[in-house]
């Protein structure tokens, strides 16, 4: 396999893209290779065409699969999901007012005011995952993108054994980062303030799991509430 080489008489460093672009387009390169490809693409803009061709290939492969009509419940659920809650750009003021009381317990008024001031905060809804163990658990993540702190507000959390804690996570593919430990109030509500920078990059899932007291390095149980997106 070619390795990039800066000496002028050797093969072009761009040649490494020949080996890596097909797998890169498929999302099958490892993270260090992905960084290498992205750096090379900046130096070798002509190769964008080749990348597009392999991305197109992946879509054409998918298009060869037989289409299958989903049951009507899927469309009904989708429509319900988009009509039941406002689009993310709109701000759910009624809900925020209710959550404000709780947040006031854990954050300063100044920090909250900073959140409320923003026009287009990030707002994610976490849905219950375990219908039997925690059917009423829900949560929201709020982050005014210009502010350092983000908030996770939870309700309906079942009580824990003394040697357990709730722990919140953000995940991007293989990479899972702890947002912190969450101690619920007796009424099952809880709030967590965490570093908003953890939401600044790409992520696909935010979830809360039950962990041994003191927390874990990565989740050891399935989530009880979860947001999944892209």
């Amino acid at each position: 396999m070619n390795t990039p080489d800066d000496t002028p008489h050797s093969a072009s460093p761009c040649d490494a893209l020949r080996d890596l672009l097909p797998a890169y387009a498929l999302g099958a390169v490892d993270p260090d290779e992905a960084r290498q490809v992205e750096a090379l693409l900046r130096r070798c803009p002509d190769w964008q065409v080749e990348l597009n061709a392999y991305q197109q290939l992946n879509a054409e492969l998918a298009a060869l699969l037989p289409p299958v009509a989903p049951p009507p419940s899927v469309k009904a659920g989708l429509i319900q999901a988009v009509t039941a809650r406002p689009k993310r750009r709109r701000w759910a003021w009624g809900w925020v007012a209710a959550a404000c009381l709780l947040i006031a317990l854990v954050v300063s008024n100044a920090a909250w005011a900073a959140v409320a001031r923003q026009q287009a905060p990030l707002e994610l809804v976490l849905h219950p995952v375990q219908a039997d163990a925690a059917p009423d658990a829900t949560g929201r993540v709020l982050w005014a993108r210009a502010e350092p702190q983000a908030f996770l507000i939870l309700s309906g959390l079942p009580p824990l054994a003394p040697d357990q804690t709730y722990q919140a996570w953000v995940r991007d593919g293989e990479r899972i980062v702890s947002l912190g430990l969450v101690q619920p109030q007796p009424d099952g509500s809880a709030a967590l303030v965490f570093d908003g920078a953890l939401l600044a990059g790409r992520f696909d899932t935010v979830g809360v799991t039950v962990e041994p007291a003191g927390g874990s390095a990565s989740p050891t149980t399935p989530p009880i509430v979860r947001w999944q997106g892209g």
């Binding site: 998918a62 298009a63 289409p67 989903p70 899927v74 469309k75 429509i79």
Partner: peptide, 14 residues
């Protein structure tokens, strides 16, 4: 969104 869904959902679901 409904129209888009009607046009593409069977490909996505497949």
């Amino acid at each position: 969104l409904e129209a888009l869904y009607d046009a593409y959902a069977s490909r996505v679901y497949g």
